[in-house]
Amino acid sequence: MVKINGEMLDMAGKTVTEMLAAMEVNGQRVAVELNEDIVPKASYGETVLKEGDTVEVVRFVGGG
């Protein structure tokens, strides 16, 4: 299990790209932290989530 935005989800083994797709999140509007470090956007496809990881998906919405 992987802790994503505080929720335990069955995402171990998935890449960040696959996780975002499963969450139905637009990858152009997020920043992703893995164990408190930023995941570079270019690495989403090759960064694999492991059992016990903590992920924060920061979703941005429009307006300013």
Binding site: Q28, R29, V30, A31, I38, P40, K41, V58, F60, V61, G62, G63, G64
Partner: peptide
């Protein structure tokens, strides 16, 4: 970061953090 478009916010935040 004080943009209005969501994709631009994400771009700036990712770029600065990376």
């Amino acid at each position: 970061e004080a943009f209005d478009r969501a994709d631009q916010k994400a771009m700036l935040v990712n770029c600065v953090l990376e």
